[in-house]
Write a protein that binds this DNA or RNA. Structure first.
Lengths: 149, 149
DNA sequence: GCGTTATAGTTTCAAATGAAACCACTTGCA
DNA sequence: TGCAAGTGGTTTCATTTGAAACTATAACGC
């Protein structure tokens, strides 16, 4: 048996390896959505995530945005710099704690949100159309389990 | 009704938005695995994917590696440069077509493979332990459907 | 109060990434 | 032949990313 005899090495089959499948699927889906607004609004995925969170929770601090988007604070800081610069997000400092910023979408930010949110939702719908009702329930249940601690 | 009245804007709930959930899950899982070998072997995820493919299919060209890893050819070219430099992959030119390279793991490459592959598999197992047999079947079926055309 | 430790956020520097230009070889076709 | 078009692969350049250092403010212990 030579050193490179395959069965001795049990090579990984990427196409059935769960982490790999998740990675490919996730990238494909995210990229397809991003393609739809990235150019048109000059808006990155990280920027869009920040906007989506601020649409739901006005007045959050940067750290809270980072928590809710699962992004690190450097990425959030940079996304915010661009969004504030572009007039899409307003930023002031917290009254009681001058380290914290208080963030919210501006009217312009809301206008973009109101176009991009339905667009993202429609992409999700198109994806979910590939599944029947039963499969969607299982998917939700399984993702919750996999994502838990 | 003010301009920022929430229900008028229907903000996206990231935590139930499928593309977002996939992205978080995929990143968490991949990072956890990478943490286990990245430092120890000074091996990036892209490099590992290339090695995993070469473990299964000896003699592939760079383009074929790119196809099988779903990476672009630039990423593959760079990963290969590092792997060849590190003595983990051997590269020669194809007899009949001098543009193509013929790639394979070296003994050293196999040695690393034989540590990292079981390690990756065990991570996957730990992840799948969160699911019962029925859920695993559904997951496989659902991922196949979502990933199709 | 006052030094120590912790937290919010930004900046810096090095490495990773992607698009497009590029080089080398091969193929197709007059 | 021989030259235009195509393919395999690398390099270049601009942008993105991440880790660690840094600044400013707040909280804690005494």
């Amino acid at each position: 048996m030579t050193a490179s005899h395959k069965s001795a090495h049990a090579p990984l089959e990427l196409e059935s390896f769960l982490p790999y499948r998740l990675s490919i699927l996730s990238n494909t889906v995210s990229q397809a959505i991003a393609d739809d607004y990235q150019q048109r609004y000059h808006l990155s995925v990280t920027e869009w995530r920040v906007m989506a969170v601020l649409a739901r929770f006005e007045g959050l601090s940067a750290r809270e945005v980072a928590e809710r988007t699962a992004m690190d604070k450097v990425a959030v800081s940079r996304a915010l710099a661009r969004l504030v610069e572009a007039g899409r997000v307003s930023r002031c400092t917290h009254d009681a704690d001058k380290r914290r910023s208080v963030l919210a979408l501006t009217a312009e930010g809301w206008a973009i949100h109101d176009v991009v949110a339905p667009l993202a939702r429609s992409h999700e719908s198109r994806l979910l159309e590939k599944l029947d009702t039963e499969e969607r329930h299982w998917l939700d249940r399984i993702l919750r389990k996999l994502a838990s601690g």
